[in-house]
Nucleic acid binder design. Structure first.
Ligand SMILES: [Mn+2]
Ligand SMILES: [Mn+2]
Ligand SMILES: [Mn+2]
Ligand SMILES: [Mn+2]
Lengths: 147, 147
DNA sequence: ACTGAAGTATAGCCAAGGCTAAAAAAAATG
DNA sequence: CATTTTTTTTAGCCTTGGCTATACTTCAGT
């Protein structure tokens, strides 16, 4: 019997990849948000994180626990949350990608308001290769624009 | 005391919307897939659905149960799965959106291979307004291309 | 018609990510 | 400095969407 093809089908690879990306999405959003709060307010408090993420406080606390477990953040009881170097690096990458996604959407004709909304979910599925293409496209737009 | 602003912040709206979109993602993928299988093979069997989705059989069975609960599919024990009219309509909408997303990515310079992968996650966060913009952009491209 | 293989369903486990309600700590106020 | 208010944590619940192992049907080959 010739090894009845138990290799994953072409399609299944797509879905598996999308699920993996989704699994990182929450982490990415929290890290970016915590970075923003520290920049804007000097510190990231649980209540502010929860409010801006649109979740109840305990939900934010749980997410922060996961962040700490993953080595992206640190905090001591009843004190604010801070990013590790790794967390900071991730936050910066995620923030840059977020901006590129919004700009690309706008560049292809999506109203800015809508772009801001859709980008929040889209960003997590934009691979490095796609991001590279987005940035190239935007750079080109800018050049064309000023002639 | 002046009603201490318990309105959701501007940002939280984005995240809440993204979470809502994500909640539909699995349903959308299954419905599209079942439609494909019926078109390709004449029927959608649990094993094939699972294989193509890249999950274990019981996971597919559970998803199908949810689909039935939502009125998108029907099936009787040990028989294949079929889409309701509503499910069929959703499948068609989702399939069209999926294609537009892939084409847009390709149009802005993403390698086709990569576009196929990224689109699987991106599609679920593309609103009607964005989709409209994508299609307009693609139509324009096509026109420009043939001069 | 039997029987073994293939396909399907069920039971029961897990982690993530939501929630509310209650307890505990910190901060603000008189 | 005592008390009240705010903030944070903890406990405990739920659904989704993964999994494995086991039981049950259906189907095909002899
Ligand atoms: Mn996001
Ligand atoms: Mn973001
Ligand atoms: Mn998809
Ligand atoms: Mn799809």
């Amino acid at each position: 019997m010739p090894e009845t093809s138990s290799r994953p089908s072409k399609q299944s690879v797509r879905f598996i990849r999308a699920r993996e990306a989704q699994a990182c999405a929450v982490m990415e959003d929290y890290v970016e948000m915590i970075g923003d709060l520290i920049r804007d307010l000097g510190e990231a408090r649980t209540a502010d994180i929860a409010e801006r993420m649109g979740v109840a406080h305990p939900t934010a606390t749980k997410a922060i626990t996961r962040l700490k477990r993953e080595g992206l953040a640190v905090s001591r009881p009843y004190r604010g949350v801070f990013l590790t170097d790794e967390g900071e690096a991730l936050a910066n990458r995620v923030r840059a990608r977020h901006r590129s996604v919004v700009e690309l959407l706008v560049a292809v004709g999506v109203p800015r308001e809508t772009a801001e909304l859709d980008a929040e979910g889209i960003e997590h599925h934009v691979s490095d290769r796609s991001l590279e293409a987005f940035n190239k496209f935007l750079a080109n737009e800018a050049k064309e624009g000023k002639d």
